[in-house]
Every structure is written in C-alpha cells, then in structure tokens.
Amino acid sequence: MNQFYRSGFILTCLYISCISPSFAQMPFDEIMMPKGELCVAVLGEHGSWNRYWEGDYFRENANIGTFTRQMLMPMVAMGISKKVNIIASLPYIQTEASGGTQVGQADLQDLSVSVKVDWLQQRVGAGRLLFLTNTHLSNPVGSYLSDYMPFSIGAGAPEIGMRAITGYKMDNGLVFRLATAYLWRGQTQIERDFYYQDGAVYSPFMNVPNAVNIQGAIGYWTLENRLRLEATYMSLNCLTGDDIRSYNRPQPTNKMEVSQVGFWAQYYIKADRGFGAIAYFNQTVSGRNVGKAATMGLGLTYQFKAY
C-alpha cells in the first residue's frame, strides 16, 4: 500500500516544491524554472495508521498495532529550458509496526525521473488557463522485497506515468488545479514461485495493477507570493487486482484504492533564490486494501543558478 503514498507524494513534490517565487511560482504556472536553474530539496515524512481496509472491511489488527512509515527523500529539479524541467528523486524509507513479532523494512526505494512540459498559458478572464504534462519513470534501486507487505517500502515494480495538469490561476492569488495521471506498472519479482491471486499462480513475478491518480488543489498565494497555502485532494485507484484475503497479509497484486485530503504550505524565505520551506499534512479518508494513514511532512528547498 505504500507506493500510493509515494506516488501521491512524488506527485505533490514534482509540481509544488522547488519553485522560486521570483520566477513566478509553480510548474503549472506560465513560468517554470528557467534554463540553468537548479533546485535541491530534502523532505522528511512521517506516516502512520492503526486501522486498514481488508478489501472493503475496515479493521484493526493487534499484531500490527500502529504501523509507522518514515521517509527521507532527496530531490533535484533542473530547468532544461523555460518550457521543459526535469526532476529526480530517490527516497529512503523505513517501516515498522508496534505490534506483532515481525521486523520492518528499511531501504532505498525507487529512483524516479520525470519530465515536465509547459504547453499552454492562455489569458482567460481575470486569470490564466494552464496546461502542462508530466511524464515519469521510476524503478526500484534498492534490494527491498515488495512481497513483504504491509512492511514493504514499495511495490518493487517499474512505473511509467503520464499526467495531464490543468489549472486556472487568478490574478488575485487563487489557484485551481486538477491533475490526472495514468500509471502503468510492470511486474515485481518476488522470492517465491507460487502464490494465490484469485487462484493458483506459478510464477516468481507478480503483476502490479495499473492505476489512475487524481490530484486536485485549491491554492492561495499571499505575502507577496512568498507563502503558498493549498487544500489538496488525492486519489489513487488500481484498475485491476485482488483483495486482501481474510486476516491475511496484503500483496503487490492487490487492488489498492485510496483517497486523501490534505493541506500544504510553502514559504520562501527570500523572495528570490535560496532557501524555502515546506510543510504538509494528508489524511486518508477512504480506501481499499490500504491503511488509513495520516501523513505529515517537512521539507527544505534550496534553489540556485547552476549555469
């Protein structure tokens, strides 16, 4: 279930962090990071849950107790040109449960590289209509085992995502944004060669279901474009997959679904290059085959002219 937090999180990062207000804000605005501009960031995230959905049955499990997932993620973003930016990230994740006798997992997760393109900026009424795309590729780099849920730090499969971002930014600082992504996921190699997924499967590979990911936000820029506040919504729905079986552990083939609401704040210490800070909070409101997690994160960004 963790890859969802990752997806949602990376998504958020890709679009929201690393933007200097001196260059007119966000990737879904008319100006992205200019050519030669580089931004590095580190984000720390803490998520936990003590109840989860087994299929659509919402339950507790004293042998998990409270499940905790912590992440430290370095990121780097670069302006290739005014219209094309590249962003890469590689999180380190650690999981543990307060109950039971099983050990958690800790490893580098997936390297993600994404290309963001600014396609359209059109003045409409008291604002601008925007259209951007983001394409990402991610692949596991660590040796973590995906078939060790719920402790696994990721789905252990390559992912290709295509995302369309539409937005409307008003001159008074209000922003409306909707991003929709299709996530194609490959297979994850596991360490057994027989498993059950609606029947017997004789293979050391599991198919990780493809998914649709939706992100919506209503944002507001204030303090001379140095503080950005957003109310966010995120959902991720696998298109296929099986349910966690009764009192059994999850596996990467599960049809995972999650929707969460959140809040995001970003502050630029100087209205130019240099340091910025991020804080956010997400609460899962509904799900299937995932934990009902509350997640909070803090981040530090630093932007400079690289060449």
């Binding site: 290709i160 194609w184 490959g186 297979q187 997924q197 499967v201 004789y202 293979s203 599991m206």
Partner: peptide, 23 residues
Amino acid sequence: QITILMLLVVGLQACLEETPRFY
C-alpha cells in the same frame, strides 16, 4: 514524447513474464 512513452510501455509490456495458472 507520446511516441517515446508508447514505445516504452509496449517494450516493457513485452518483457513481462508469464504468470501461469497451471503447468
């Protein structure tokens, strides 16, 4: 961009291992 992506997806899809239900 779309073309490259499609090729990637098709290419990776072709690499997928079988997950047989019986021998």
